[in-house]
Design a binder for these strands. Structure first.
Lengths: 196, 196
DNA sequence: CTGTAATTTCAGGAATTACTGAAATGATAG
DNA sequence: CTATCATTTCAGTAATTCCTGAAATTACAG
């Protein structure tokens, strides 16, 4: 492995813990990401000096994140692995999976907990706060869902526009006359900071 | 603690590991979040059945995330802790801190690594891929920075607009007349306009 | 200062998570 | 079916992270 690739792979290994994956998984993905051709498990194990079984578990984990492309070579029984070519696809998948793992369980808890009527009068404050949190998360996830539907070209255009989008909204408000509330299904949540 | 609050606190404890904090820190923050008045460390330790020193370390950690409000009571030497009232402020802070911890180090690595000219010819592919990743992260963080500058009201409006924002952009393009400056990747193919 | 209350630090043990080698399972060619 | 190669599972160990009690430090009242 070239010094450049090696540095990149090591970095992903170190960052792994902050990203909620372990060193092995981080390094494996970095390696697949920078490598031109698909690799089979033994090659990965050899390059990273991990045990074969560790690589197997790491690949399984990555598979759970939907971040792997699998392929075969004619006349070769071994399975080959690669990262998707499109970095934006990788990012989208990552964002979706993180939302599913880090946000959705809390969304469910808040909805469930706030549904059942409380007979404990001391719950007032807690209900209030949990309601605030729920409203925020629903707005964020709704918006995330909206953005997720957009194709890459549109999303790119939107991001390049940056704060310029505010001028558009002001312009619209001026033309239309005012802040007509958008219909119900317009709530959306943004997830700035998709995590790693 | 009421059953409702207890459930919330336990949930945050369990989710802690997925969020990159530990059980203690998760539970402490959940407790502060739902509790009306600020609490001092001993109260937290008692309610959650953690050692006093563990609470101290947890509060230090939360402080590092800038998620704590500290206060004093007249005639009382102890320090009191609370979560900010505004859930959006909490979210923004969280997003900023996560970016700092999870994204910025990689941004730095990619910039540094791609700056130094490589003499290793086998670096071609790695440079290419790392460049793609860098371009994506720069677009995302740039956009994040733009959104971060907006005040809450504007951000909320934008999120509620959801995919409606695409219609605005199309409208603008129509009014202004799409100029050649819009490059190839800016074409706006009829996108799924769910709200439309 | 001195004494006391509040808080933090830290070494070590507890708990959790990561990793390995060996064995089991699965897949395919002949 | 059988032999062989590939992959996964899993029990045990290594490594890391979490948590505690005791000691040290800090803050402040008298």
């Amino acid at each position: 492995m070239s010094p450049l690739s090696h540095r990149f792979v090591m970095h992903f290994g170190e960052m792994g813990s902050r990203w909620g994956i372990n060193r092995t998984v981080g390094q494996i993905y970095a390696l697949l990401f920078v490598t031109e051709r698909p690799l089979h498990a033994d090659e990965i194990a050899e390059q990273l000096a991990f045990s074969r079984s560790n690589v197997s578990m790491g690949l399984k984990e990555l598979d759970g994140w939907r971040l792997l492309r699998r392929s075969y070579l004619p006349g070769d029984r071994r399975e080959y692995f690669a990262a998707p070519d499109d970095v934006w696809l990788i990012f989208r998948t990552l964002a979706e999976e993180r939302k599913k793992r880090e946000i959705d369980p809390t969304l469910t808890l808040l909805r469930d907990a706030l549904l059942e009527p409380s007979n404990d009068p001391s719950d007032g404050r807690a209900q209030q706060r949990m309601g605030e949190m729920l409203a925020m998360i629903e707005m964020l996830t709704g918006w995330f869902e909206d953005m997720r539907k957009l194709d890459q070209a549109t999303l790119t255009k939107l991001m390049k526009l940056g704060t310029g989008v505010v001028r558009l909204i002001e312009m619209k408000d001026k033309l239309v006359g005012v802040r007509g509330e958008q219909s119900a299904n317009d709530q959306v949540p943004p997830s700035p900071l998709p995590g790693a």
